[in-house]
Simulated assay, not measured.
Amino acid sequence: MCDHHDHGGHGHGACAAEHTGDDVERGVQYSLYLRIDLDHLECLNEDVEGSGRKVFKAWEDRHQRDVYAESADDAELLFNIPFTGNVKLKGIIVSGEDGDSHPASMRLYKNRPEMGFDDMSLPPDQEFELMKDPIGELEYGVKIVKFATVHHLTIHFKRNFGADTTRIYYIGLRGEFTAARREEIVIANYELKPNPCDTKLKEMTLSSNFVQ
């Protein structure tokens, strides 16, 4: 596995997958799609409602061409992706057509739920120039330190290679998942002065324990 990072925050930052690697192992590494809260995933400017959810799928299904997300009015697509826990994101693969509809740029924002196109003036946490990848083999390595604790990921595809609309077949996310833990709130009541009644009751209770 190539773990090439884009330290400058902008650029290609991609590497080809190692063909000698075990494909089953790659499938395990790219299983973060199982940790997405699909019921609350949002894809803005999708031509068909709900199609954006379908590009997050199993590694072995990345070559399917009957399931895809396509933009409606222009080339932009915006994915708001909530996770069911915390993710340490390490790499992303984006697969589209071997043509002008393939996305040409990708911007990442972490932990900013419900972003819209009006929010895209904000600087991204990382940005990539993409290459055409119809077979789903080029991984874009993210800044692991910056994306070490991610509960929500926004991916913005601003432009493609010149087509009127953008089409995406597969988005693969590689990383580590940690289930969210519910914090137990313990409320402690402190009294500045002891209550004489409480003290007497405790003494009575203590004495009763020794009654034969």
Rank of each mutant, 00 (worst) to 15 (best):
G13A: 10
C15W: 14
C15G: 12
A17V: 14
D22W: 10
V24W: 12
V24E: 12
R26Y: 12
V28R: 15
V28F: 12
Y30D: 11
Y30I: 08
S31P: 14
L32H: 10
L32R: 12
R35Q: 13
R35S: 07
I36F: 08
D37F: 05
D37I: 13
D37E: 08
H40Y: 10
E42C: 11
L44N: 09
D47V: 10
G50F: 07
S51A: 05
G52V: 05
G52D: 02
V55W: 03
D61F: 04
R62D: 02
D66G: 11
V67T: 15
S71I: 02
A72L: 07
A72P: 04
D73P: 01
A75N: 02
E76D: 05
L77N: 00
N80H: 00
F83K: 01
F83R: 01
T84K: 08
T84Y: 08
N86K: 10
V87K: 00
G91A: 06
G91D: 05
G91K: 06
G91I: 05
I93T: 10
V94G: 01
S95Y: 00
S95P: 02
S95E: 02
G99T: 00
D100R: 02
D100H: 07
D100Q: 09
D100W: 03
D100F: 01
A104W: 03
R107W: 08
L108P: 01
L108N: 04
Y109S: 06
Y109M: 11
Y109R: 04
K110G: 09
N111Q: 14
R112F: 11
P113A: 04
E114Y: 13
D119E: 07
D119L: 06
L122Q: 13
